[in-house]
Design a protein around this nucleic acid. Structure first.
Lengths: 329, 329
DNA sequence: TTGTAGGCGTTATCAT
DNA sequence: ATGATAACGCCTACAA
């Protein structure tokens, strides 16, 4: 006990956290030296027990194998640490069932985390309700749209998608732009799909062909295969997630189709992976850092819940045709 | 307080954790029903304070932007959860200085984690010593070689590298295999470099050209550029990390060099990213799951510290020349 | 400015 | 088989 080191008792508490009461410079110095002499560290469990706060946030997130989510998680980490909070990952297991996700929440609740950061894809009605029942603070990130009664943060996905497709149309003159997108069972519900549509319609073009497949590399591959097998394949493709974009590229290469000469590609998300794909992918990039910071801020500052939206930025690279290819083909 | 719900006191403890003392079936049932009636959850902080254990492991790991480390972290998570432990990430920030990494450790120590999983690249003498001084259990993972007095887990990197280079030599007949590898200041110290050398020498070939660069995509790009600029570039390249392999591919494409026809490539690590690169990368794959499980096991089971090594597996794909290319070039 | 003491929710020991 | 009770380490009135 550090108390024996100096001569004081609860004064050490005052010193450790600029306590509610002032301490004379002299004793304060003595305590501090004793602290790092004895290598004293406040016991977080005891503090948590007393205070009722663990300075810990729970991150509920599946699919960290998607580099976009990895980046998001890292940024959230950084933002949380910045604010003095640690992050414990909500047991993101590969095979997430309803039961397991309930289990995850209960574990985190039991650990007395001060708040929950829930990825949109994990924010089922069930989950949100469970959280509310245990009156836990929470914010949903990567949210495509507001969720009544909950704080949400997300990109302006429609705008991002639109800007990518508009680039294809107005700069490169494509008139037939296909879409590879996920299938959440609600056709047309995805903002990315709307953005793609908007861009085409306001250019007075017909909706291009569309392939629904998983939001994975394999899904992108499969979607592109379907597009290619048509009698009249499109001259450009918008892959609505970077992972799919990578798969699209693979399918195109495998089929001997040149990118961007034969088919141009643009995509959505924008991690490091699509910077070093070949060709490098033109992409509507998510403002990951800003969104992460906003999510943590919303979680930590009291106030009415609302939806916060962030603009996406078009990053132009080779796959749309902007950078000349080497003299290969 | 759940105690008022039933009529008992510490019996609830016995029933919650099959306690050290038996409980009659009748009261046990009464307690259990009270528990989920009141939605009671044991307070982990209090338990930790009393018991001295938090059922939490600290993961000290920089560079999660490398998908190999992401996979490793995920597997460690899974293994830890399996064993009933949560994982809190050791504030992996982008700009890790000595001071910050010390700060990370102290935070984790204060949180009373039951043990530390430290990535080899973060396991500086300083860090290890600090851990020992605070008598914290720890294990170093992704360790290239034993560290006296510490538990370590790592791949048999020399064997993995050798098998990749041997494939190039014996199956595809390459006689001039370049190496792109990191620079840790100790030339020749890396087991991957030794494996590459061994494979060449036992085939009675001369050491190929060698480029040292960062273990990143950009590093691989830069290394490949240097190899290409030589008057006599090699006919094959071993990139000693997957990230570098991706960068090598990019540089080759950009220069209009065909892979694998003009230059073959093999690499090391083996996450999903190199499965969908073009061409897909032949790779010596790390046994991520086994290593993660072993690290957690070593950390949790008492016993003398030792070094545990895991064999790597060669995954053959297109970049070495095994799969015929489409009729493009 | 500093010391004393009570209590946060658990578990474990000691009685009963 | 179960009820009381002390103690884990910290924070914070309150007293000095």
């Amino acid at each position: 006990m550090a108390r024996y080191a100096g001569v004081s008792s609860a004064v050490v508490s005052y010193v450790v956290n600029g306590g509610p009461r002032p301490v004379s410079e002299e004793t304060s110095a003595r305590v501090r030296s004793a602290i790092d002499l004895l290598g004293y560290r406040p016991n977080v469990s005891a503090r948590a027990l007393r205070i009722g706060s663990t300075s810990t946030l729970g991150l509920v997130l599946g699919g960290l194998e998607n580099p976009y989510f990895t980046e998001l998680a890292l940024s959230i980490q950084a933002a949380a640490n910045e604010a003095g909070y640690a992050v414990v990952m909500g047991n993101v297991d590969r095979n997430r069932s309803a039961a397991s996700s309930r289990h995850i929440l209960d574990d985190l609740i039991g650990r007395q985390v001060d708040g929950f950061l829930v990825a949109s894809e994990n924010a089922t009605a069930d989950t949100l309700e469970h959280l509310q029942r245990n009156n836990a603070r929470s914010v949903v990130f990567d949210a495509p749209s507001p969720i009544p009664g909950h704080s949400t943060v997300g990109p302006d996905a429609a705008q991002g998608a639109r800007s990518a497709v508009e680039h294809l149309v107005s700069v490169h003159g494509h008139r037939d732009v296909g879409l590879v997108i996920g299938d959440d069972g609600r056709a047309g519900a995805d903002a990315r799909e709307r953005g793609w549509q908007d861009a085409l319609r306001s250019a007075r073009l017909l909706d291009g062909p569309l392939a629904r497949a998983d939001f994975t590399r394999a899904g992108g591959y499969e979607g592109a295969r379907r597009l290619l097998e048509a009698a009249n394949p499109p001259s450009a493709v918008f892959a609505s997630s970077e992972l799919q974009g990578i798969g699209v590229l693979y399918a195109l290469h495998e089929a001997g189709v040149r990118v961007p000469e034969d088919v141009a590609v643009v995509t959505f998300d924008g991690t490091a992976e699509c910077e070093y794909s070949w060709p490098s992918l033109t992409v509507a990039r998510q403002p990951v850092d800003s969104m992460a910071a906003a999510a943590v801020r919303q979680l930590l500052t009291p106030g009415a819940s609302h939806h916060e939206t962030f603009p996406m930025e078009l990053v132009v690279r080779r796959s749309c045709g902007c950078v000349p290819q080497p003299t290969t083909g």
